[in-house]
Amino acid sequence: MSHMSYREALRRSLQEALRQDPRVFLMGEDVGRYGGTYAVSKGLLEEFGPERIRDTPLSELGFVGAGIGAALGGMRPIVEVMTVNFSLLALDQIVNTAALYRHMSGGQFSVPLVIRMATGAGRQVAAQHSHSFEGWYAHIPGIKILAPGTIEDARCMLAPALRDPDPVLLFEHTVLYNMEGEVPDECRVDISSARVRREGSDVTIITYGGSLPKALEAAETLAAEGIRAEVLDLRVLRPLDDATIMASVRKCRRAVVVDEGWRSGSLAAEVMARIVEQAFYDLDAPLARVCSEEVPIPYARHLEEAALPQPEKIVAAVRTMLGA
């Protein structure tokens, strides 16, 4: 086991990929000379040079599309979009090209591209820098969506994402970059399954990414009250691992979904719909969810906190559900 931060874990995964496969290169805004906006790629320019740690202009549509083309041309590009907020400028290439090429070409062209981006709120950077659009992207067939919420996943998800022949979007929540913890020396993770992060029997708290530590904190609080909450980390938002979700829900017979996306049309809504479709008669109580309030994320600290899912809100939702 090694001790490291989420940021360091991501950096190690990039370094490993760049060392192992000459086809891999990293491209994005400020990934090289600046060292990465969130310092994830710090030091990589020195080791791998400007060809493979490639600074780009502020042209999200252009360089994401170039990543698609380079993938079609035999490379294994990792494109860093500084944040999910700016990925909207590249949405056309992600949705209309990367996601569609294989199917639209009758199976002739796969796009083995990895796009990394920071996501989420909680750092008082206001409405235009606080989006959580993982759920939007998870709507789209043809791409896969990963949301590492642990240091191990930050360290280990990139390698299978690069082995995947199709486009993979990897969302790194900004509040997790400084989180520290233990990582096994050998990576043994998949990019297809959800994972139980805390065992329980009274209620399943289903979440992912930046909300995972909040859900674990809530479970700890509930444990002191004698409520045994299971915490399920979705990890992979597309395709969703229905089997693991239903197994946990059937065991606990109650579920709360925690999602930093806005409530309406959220990934939480999709998860709840699937539970209703597949496990309705195993439920002892109506499902509940804790999402972001339907408001642009405000700058002021107290308002931002009020807008986002918080451990207290999760605890309250569970107590209400259990009539505790």
Partner: peptide
């Protein structure tokens, strides 16, 4: 490589193909 029906959608892809080459 297509047959792209979003106007200008093929240009970034072409740049990427050339980058790979």
């Amino acid at each position: 490589f297509g047959g792209n029906a979003i106007v200008a959608g093929g240009l970034p892809v072409a740049v990427g193909l050339a980058l790979a080459d």
